[in-house]
Computed example of a mutant assay.
Amino acid sequence: MTEQPHRDQLREAFESNEHNTPDPAAVYARVQELSLKYKRRRRGAQIAAGGVLGAGLIAGAINLPAFLPANQAVTNTAAGLPAAAPATSASASPSTENENLDAYTEAGYGYDDAGKLAKLWKMSDDDRIAVKAEAGRRLLLGETLPIQPSPDAPVEEETISPTQEKQFRAFFEAGYSWTEAEKLAKIWNIKDPSDAKLEAGKRLLAGQTLPVKPQKANVTAALEEKRANAFFRAGYDVSDAVKLAKIWNLKDAWGAKVEGGKRILAGQTLPIQP
């Protein structure tokens, strides 16, 4: 699978929960987990192809609100004993946490290991990223964990064709999300909603109308994103957006990106070169 579908998964996760207003720390922790999943998926493919050693894919559905970090501090660092109050992803700085998580992965431990350690250390099994970070911290201190590593099985990367990429893009740029994909899958008797996205994108590119309408808010957001992407694809960057915002008397750089992309898609020339 290319990087685009992973960005789509992140985007859908936020869109489907945008009204739930989760705690910012929880959002950050979940995004970190998703990022690490993708990194390990790529490493898993390298293993399957005879490449460097690393951890494989951590399987699991995206459920943003369920990943809520605890707020505890470490007092017992003995690796073989339950930790009375382990450190969590919310209490560590991003750089320190990443180092801990990398140490955990490089030592060969996987997702199931985090569940076992959560039980031993009496940590929340719902926040395995915190368990991994705590385990990595101990490993960096030279401690031995109470269980042997059992890395996740490596998986072979799935790839998509340029045509499928266009179909996915057409689906999302029209404002559709996973919710509509599930509905379309039922209507078209397609087992996997991801395949329904491809079919929907194919029909949209052919100028057809789908039997399900996207949410208005998503349509607006998707149009802005499409225009902003056109702005960047034309070679412009954030500093250019700041300049254009001043020229056009716009409130912020994002508005300039959207306006610039709109004009570029209409075949117009912007007042500055990228």
Rank of each mutant, 00 (worst) to 15 (best):
S150N: 14
S150K: 15
E143A: 13
E173A: 14
E173S: 14
E182H: 10
S177E: 10
R169N: 10
L184Q: 12
S161N: 10
I160Y: 13
R169T: 15
T163D: 12
G175C: 00
L184F: 13
A153W: 02
S177K: 10
I187F: 06
P151Y: 00
S150A: 15
P162V: 10
E182M: 10
E143C: 03
V155Y: 03
I190W: 04
L141T: 00
E156A: 10
P154V: 05
D152E: 11
L140I: 06
E180Y: 02
F171I: 06
I190Q: 06
E173Y: 12
Q164C: 03
A185S: 13
A185E: 03
W188K: 05
G142Y: 05
F171L: 05
E156L: 14
E157M: 07
A153F: 02
Q167S: 08
S161Y: 09
P154N: 08
A181L: 11
G142W: 04
T179M: 08
Y176D: 03
E158P: 01
I147R: 09
Q167F: 13
G175V: 00
K186F: 00
P149T: 01
E182K: 15
E156D: 07
K186E: 15
L141Q: 13
E173M: 06
T159Y: 03
F168P: 00
L145N: 02
Q167K: 14
L145V: 01
P162C: 05
I190G: 05
F172R: 15
E158K: 14
K166S: 13
E180W: 02
S150P: 02
Q164N: 11
F172E: 07
A185W: 03
E143H: 09
W188H: 04
I187Y: 07
I160K: 06
E165Y: 05
W188F: 02
W178T: 07
S150T: 15
G142N: 01
E158T: 11
L140W: 03
D152A: 08
Q164M: 08
P146K: 12
Y176T: 00
G142M: 04
E180S: 02
A174V: 06
P149D: 04
T179K: 15
S161R: 07
K183S: 14
E165I: 11
L141N: 03
I147W: 12
L184Y: 09
Q167R: 15
I187L: 15
P154D: 07
Q148D: 15
T159R: 08
K183E: 15
L139I: 13
D152Y: 09
G175I: 03
E157D: 10
F171W: 15
S161I: 09
Q164T: 04
L184S: 08
L145Q: 04
S150Q: 14
E180T: 03
L184W: 08
K186M: 05
G142P: 01
Q148K: 15
V155L: 11
K183C: 06
L140S: 06
I190F: 04
K186A: 13
K186Y: 00
I190Y: 04
A174R: 13
S150C: 07
A170D: 11
K166G: 02
